[in-house]
């Protein structure tokens, strides 16, 4: 177990910068998710932490000690790849035991069986990886990563190859196991649900930079940047360019954001015409055409209350609006309102 610190970390290839100026401190035993779209540098960061990539700038510290040049095999890090990367030529037990071949592990086999029990694959130890389902392979990979009691557990999109139900179970499983072992864990994912449900803190990355670090609700309610606002939340936030004659907002604001659940139908307000429905279980996502362009709002209920072509009015609370300046940064404590001038 270790405290991990990244200081101005940078990784550049000949022609491109993958990660730059990355500062992050992860507490001992903490579960942190690095969230971002593909190509944002999150996997590169992970491979630098594992010791497989050499940073081109900045430092990586494990418990305050600089480990930049320490080879992967000496860092005592466990890793689970999206493909699971099991060794096809070895049985499940041999796979789990593989890391113990390189360091003194008393009772290695007993420990491997404990690990197998913890991830519930003790019936499969003699099988080959090719005979296992995706979920089982995932569990083997997890047991293999944990057998040497790693300082740090790295998970690279571990759930992406699983089906939806299995993903739900494995999310809870991984969380339970990492909490039981108290291991510091970094999860890399492009799936915001994975990040927000599993992690203590979420690091949102874009184009090689950290956009925001915080708890899931911070990122959702108080996005620091326009990117975070657009990336977090499903369905995504409504974003409208400012200035706009129908929106009353501070003059420095350049973008007006409003979550779909903040908009609601009312007697008066912004006129809208229904164009599309998406029932989402207990809520219905409705797309409407308005003078501000296409907007989306969420309404409770399993059945749509409207029909395509219906006219209605929308309104929202002044405090729900989120405003961003020309650089894309959020303007703190600013409020805005869609006005009804001429449409009442």
């Amino acid at each position: 177990m270790a405290q991990i610190e990244l200081k101005a970390l940078q990784k550049a290839w000949d022609d491109a910068v993958a990660v730059q100026d990355m500062n992050l401190t992860i507490q001992d035993g903490e579960f942190v998710a690095i969230l971002g779209p593909s190509g944002c540098g999150k996997s590169t960061t992970l491979l630098m932490l594992a010791g497989l990539y050499l940073p081109t700038g900045g430092d990586i510290l494990f418990d305050g000690t600089r480990v930049n040049e320490v080879e992967a095999r000496h860092r005592n890090v466990g890793i689970v790849f999206q493909s699971y990367a099991l060794y096809p030529n070895m049985s499940v037990l041999q796979n789990i035991l593989f890391p113990t071949r390189f360091q003194q592990t008393p009772d290695a086999e007993k420990r491997a069986r404990e690990m197998a029990e913890m991830v519930q694959i003790n019936q499969l130890l003699e099988r080959r990886p090719s005979q296992l389902s995706g979920g089982q392979q995932q569990r083997v990979a997890l047991a293999r990563a944990l057998i040497k009691r790693p300082n740090l557990l790295l998970l690279d999109e571990p759930l992406s190859n699983l089906d939806a139900t299995l993903r739900l179970t494995m999310r809870a499983e991984i969380r339970r196991i990492t909490r039981d072992l108290g291991v510091t864990t970094i999860l890399v994912t492009h799936d915001q649900l994975e990040a927000t449900t599993m992690a203590d803190r979420v690091v949102c990355m874009n184009a090689g930079r950290i956009e925001q670090i915080g708890r899931a609700e911070d990122l959702y309610l108080r996005p620091d940047t326009l990117f975070v606002a657009g990336f977090i939340g499903s369905p995504p936030m409504n974003l409208i360019s400012l200035p706009h004659p129908l929106i009353e907002a501070p003059s420095i604001a350049r973008t007006f954001g409003l979550r779909p659940e903040a908009l609601r139908p009312a007697e008066t307000g912004l006129p809208a015409q229904v164009t599309h429905f998406e029932p989402m279980g207990r809520e219905v996502l409705t797309t409407v055409q308005t003078p501000l362009g296409l907007l989306r709002f969420l309404e409770a209920g399993t059945q749509p209350l409207w029909q395509v072509g219906d006219s209605l009015h929308l309104t929202h609370a002044r405090d729900d609006a989120i405003l961003f300046d020309g650089t894309g940064a959020r303007i703190p404590n600013a409020t805005a309102l869609i006005t009804e001038q001429g449409y009442a």
């Binding site: 992967a72 095999r73 990367a85 060794y87 071949r101 040497k148």
Partner: peptide, 25 residues
């Protein structure tokens, strides 16, 4: 796949060991 080799190296193998034990088979 690269993953297998990288996995072996984080598991404690040197590059040569990863080649012998994981890639060559």
């Amino acid at each position: 796949p690269w993953d297998i080799e990288m996995s072996a190296m984080t598991d404690g193998a040197s590059r040569r060991e990863a080649f012998w034990m994981v890639v060559l088979p």
